[in-house]
Design a protein around this nucleic acid. Structure first.
Length: 261
DNA sequence: ATGGTTGGTAGCCAA
């Protein structure tokens, strides 16, 4: 079973590119971020025609996540618990049945957090990470295959960006952020890409600005975290870098893992 | 050091 994550940067602008990628990559489950659409306006018909069930958690203008799945949804849970005031659409969980097993897949869009001197941004990010930690700790007690897929806005290590000096002090790379990402993994998650390769210079995002893509000035911020039960079944993990060269690309590219469930 | 681009939206904000 192939499970993917992709920040598409707007479903309206990316619809045709998404359809083409779904046809070529043929994921069983695709977690999308930054759909930038309310649920009622999400263009689901062509996606459904390719055999996908579509569930969204959107809002007007920005943010918004979705899960596309060939398996029927047993359950959909929207919003990350821990702050009733948080209205931003950044988190949803789909629950599926595969054979006699439950499979849980989360599509998450972790706050960017910049600028770090603005508590509405950076503190919000850190608190959101703390909430994700608490939610994950709880879910792991189920001892089920669980995959946290999404745009984490976290550069885990210096080798995950072109030039670490540029990212010093940035909310994506600073100590508070990286420490929390490490703590999340230490609950018992396996980072799919790093279980597949230790190579430096693998990126999932290249800024639209300043020729970042042709210069390969990228960062690795889209991640798949697997519970032990999912990691035991992992066959591989890859980044669909070729999509960044298409017409009207997202600034992110898909990342996916294959699990033998 | 600075500037650079895209998407959603109708202001500029978010990235």
């Amino acid at each position: 079973m192939k499970i993917a994550s992709w920040n598409i940067n707007g479903i309206k602008a990316r619809h045709d590119v998404l359809i083409e990628w779904l046809k070529q990559a043929s994921p069983d489950i695709a977690c999308l971020q930054e759909i930038k659409s309310v649920d009622e306006a999400f263009p689901a018909s062509e996606i459904e025609a390719l055999g996908y069930n579509v569930e969204t958690h959107g809002q007007k203008g920005f943010n918004g996540v979705a899960i596309l799945s060939r398996l029927p949804f047993d359950e959909v849970n929207r919003r990350l618990p821990g702050d009733d005031e948080d209205e931003l659409a950044r988190f949803m969980e789909g629950v599926f049945t595969v054979g006699d097993k439950a499979l849980r897949v989360v599509s998450l869009y972790l706050p960017n957090g910049n600028p770090v001197d603005d508590p509405r941004k950076f503190d919000y990010k850190l608190k959101w990470m703390d909430r994700l930690h608490a939610w994950s700790k709880d879910r792991l007690q189920l001892e089920e295959p669980l995959i946290l897929a999404g745009d984490y806005n976290v550069i885990p290590q210096p080798e995950d960006c072109w030039n670490p000096k540029v990212w010093e002090g940035d909310a994506l790379f600073c100590e508070e952020t990286r420490t929390r990402f490490e703590a999340l993994k230490n609950l018992g998650f396996t980072e799919a890409l790093r279980a597949s390769t230790k190579d430096a210079g693998i990126y999932t995002f290249w800024d639209y600005q300043a020729g970042a893509w042709p210069k390969n000035h990228g960062i690795r911020i889209d991640h798949l975290l697997l519970s032990a039960e999912a990691a035991d079944m992992m066959v591989g993990c890859e980044v669909d870098k070729y999509v960044r060269d298409w017409e009207k690309p997202s600034d992110h590219v898909p990342i996916w893992t294959e699990i033998s469930i």
